[in-house]
Amino acid sequence: MSAIKLKIAITLIASSLALGGCKTLDPYTGEQKTSSAVKYGAIGAAICGIIGSRKSSKRARNAALGCGIVGASIGAYMDSQEKKLRESLEQTGVSIQREGDQIRLIMPGNITFATNQSSVQSSFHPVLNSVVTVLREYEETIIEVEGYTDSTGSWSHNMTLSEARAKAVSNYLQGGGIITQRLITTGKGPNNPIANNDTAEGRAQNRRVEIRIRAIQA
């Protein structure tokens, strides 16, 4: 096994152990949950190993060790990424929100998917292509793709649909060259509404896919 492959294997094993060994109990559901700091740290370590493996010998080792953003640099890194996203996504219907050192892209369901369907509409492909271009440039980030629905219909149907839509967007990003290890994909169903589900306008806002982007911290 080459030194680079061995490094990646060790990184992935360490990440798996970290995720398995730092669980907390959700007081509401009784389910075990991995703490956010451990989860994102482990994912970041795996990503850095892969980033390093794509470079050559000594540069690969240095890249893997030096991967991750430090302190105040995180804000500047995300500022630059946000600026490019705003330029690329202007007048596309995608909302961009900055939340501390995270960037949140809100993609309304009516422009992303046909009614009750989970295949990304071809008219939305250029928008996702613009997102991919920026995400490939700023590769030291973790990307969370979350699907949401309104509250109409059964809970199980909404969960299934939201998962399928999130997966469709995630798959499109992967097809554009975003490595799998950077992506976390979940379906949230009707949870976390951003508007009132009692009105048609509110339900339309709640049917969405969100992409949350956070920097890998050194």
Rank of each mutant, 00 (worst) to 15 (best):
V134W: 13
L173W: 08
R203V: 05
E90H: 15
L17Y: 02
M1L: 11
V70G: 08
L12I: 01
I4L: 09
L65H: 04
A63F: 03
S162Q: 13
N116C: 08
A215Y: 03
K167C: 00
L89F: 03
L65R: 13
I69E: 02
V169S: 02
S56P: 00
N110I: 13
L19F: 01
A195D: 14
N196W: 03
Y138S: 11
G41E: 02
S170H: 12
I96A: 07
G100Q: 01
Q181T: 10
I111W: 11
S2K: 04
T92F: 11
T185F: 10
S56R: 03
V127Y: 13
I10C: 01
I111M: 15
I143Y: 09
A164T: 05
S35C: 06
C48F: 00
S119V: 15
G20W: 02
V131T: 09
A195Q: 13
I103P: 12
S15V: 02
T199D: 12
Q91M: 08
P108E: 15
E201M: 10
T186D: 13
A46H: 00
Y148I: 14
E90P: 01
L65E: 09
K23W: 10
I213W: 03
S170L: 03
D101Y: 15
Q117S: 15
I142M: 06
H125L: 10
V120I: 15
S88D: 10
I179G: 04
D79H: 11
S170D: 10
L85A: 09
E139T: 08
G176I: 05
E146G: 12
I213R: 04
I106N: 06
S151Y: 08
S156L: 14
E140T: 07
T149G: 04
D26H: 11
S73Y: 11
G52D: 00
C48N: 03
Q102V: 06
I178C: 09
S53Y: 02
N171H: 12
S36N: 12
D101M: 04
S95H: 03
D198Q: 13
S156M: 09
I142F: 07
R182Y: 05
N110A: 13
C22Y: 12
F124Y: 15
I216T: 00
Q81R: 11
T11Q: 07
E210V: 11
T152P: 00
N171P: 06
P126V: 07
A195Y: 04
G41L: 01
G175D: 07
T152F: 04
T24A: 15
Y172I: 03
S53T: 01
D198M: 15
L85W: 13
T34N: 05
F113V: 13
Q102Y: 12
I111C: 13
L19I: 08
Q97G: 11
S88A: 13
S16Y: 00
W155G: 00
N192I: 11
Y138E: 08
S57C: 00
E146L: 12
I10L: 07
A166E: 11
I142E: 10
L128I: 15
S36C: 05
L65C: 01
L161A: 06
G177Y: 01
C48W: 02
A9T: 07
A18K: 03
T141S: 14
S119C: 10
K5D: 09
L12P: 00
L6T: 07
E163V: 06
K188L: 14
I213V: 06
S56G: 01
I74T: 10
V70A: 15
Q121E: 14
D79P: 06
K33F: 12
G41H: 01
I43T: 05
S123C: 08
V120K: 06
V145C: 11
R165D: 05
S80I: 07
A45K: 01
A64M: 04
